[in-house]
């Protein structure tokens, strides 16, 4: 592949190298830690491209570039593909090391916040709610699991593929790719779709978990408990996590149902 734009000299990148980088993206957080965060993973993903530097994998430029790419880095794991593409391009374009360092630092914030809003707070809950709706509407195990995995990973893979290509294509001017409407307006569209889906999915999924033949009495009680519980949680403004409270409530209930009531 020969690309233009983003740097002074177009750089060829073989299909094998591109596939190598792409497959490594799935393990970008394999050595995630509290000091370098995903820095080593970035180096791991960029490494196949660095072999094309003058001198090859034994040359000083290769080692210098790999060392630079393994330093501290943080981003959303899927959108890190943008950074990997762009950083590989800058290294092969022969951009000076100090400029790459500054570029690398500048990428962290946007790639983290955009990815968190788009994926973790958008696409993931939307796909979860879609699967819960399918479950609530009577879907069997295979249909529910397939719905979730196919929907979620269509977006997941598309984002990784796009990110790598956009990063490689734009190099140091990759900010233009991140200003696309998908990132600007996508979270709001997903939030609206998620709100609509949540309204449909929650009652049907809850009714199915309660089970048939239990009458509508439990559902009415559950709706009241849900309203009171959720309003309380929202008003706590994150001072307590709901899953911890649920853990405490269930533990107390299990104790009551097995020990206290038994006695």
């Amino acid at each position: 592949m020969v690309v233009t734009g983003g740097g002074a000299a177009p750089v060829p990148l073989s299909p094998g190298t591109r596939i190598g980088i792409f497959t490594r993206l799935f393990a970008i957080q394999a050595s995630w830690n509290y000091e370098l965060l995903m820095g080593i993973g970035i180096g791991f993903c960029v490494e196949p491209a660095l072999r094309s530097l003058p001198g090859g994998p034994d040359g000083p430029r290769y080692h210098e570039a790999l060392a630079r790419q393994c330093r501290y880095f943080n981003a959303h794991p899927y959108l890190a593909s943008v950074a990997v593409g762009a950083l590989a391009r800058t290294e092969l374009d022969g951009v000076p090391g100090d400029r790459i360092e500054r570029f690398r630092t500048a990428l962290c914030g946007p790639l983290g916040s955009v990815g968190d809003r788009l994926v973790w707070a958008g696409w993931l809950p939307v796909c979860s709610l879609l699967a819960l709706a399918v479950y609530g509407l009577g879907g069997g195990p295979l249909r529910v699991v397939a719905t979730f995995l196919l929907a979620y990973n269509a977006g997941h893979l598309a984002l990784r593929i796009w990110g790598l290509q956009a990063g490689w294509k734009h190099g140091m001017r990759v900010a233009t790719a991140l200003s696309s409407r998908v990132f600007r307006d996508g979270p709001a569209y997903l939030a609206r779709a998620g709100a609509l889906l949540a309204g449909i999915a929650l009652p049907v999924a809850l009714a199915r978990v309660i089970g048939p033949g239990q009458g509508r009495g439990p559902l009415a009680g559950v709706l009241v408990a849900t309203a009171v519980g959720s309003i309380t949680l929202v008003r706590m403004h994150g001072r307590a996590e709901g899953w911890r409270i649920a853990l405490g409530v269930l533990a107390a209930f299990v104790l009551y149902a097995t020990v206290l009531r038994h006695g």
Binding site: L202, I210, P218, V222, A225, G229, S230, I245, A246
Partner: peptide, 14 residues
């Protein structure tokens, strides 16, 4: 079932 669902639903709605 109602208690389980109530706890899960409250967390989910929030």
């Amino acid at each position: 079932r109602a208690l389980v669902v109530g706890a899960a639903a409250a967390v989910a709605v929030a």
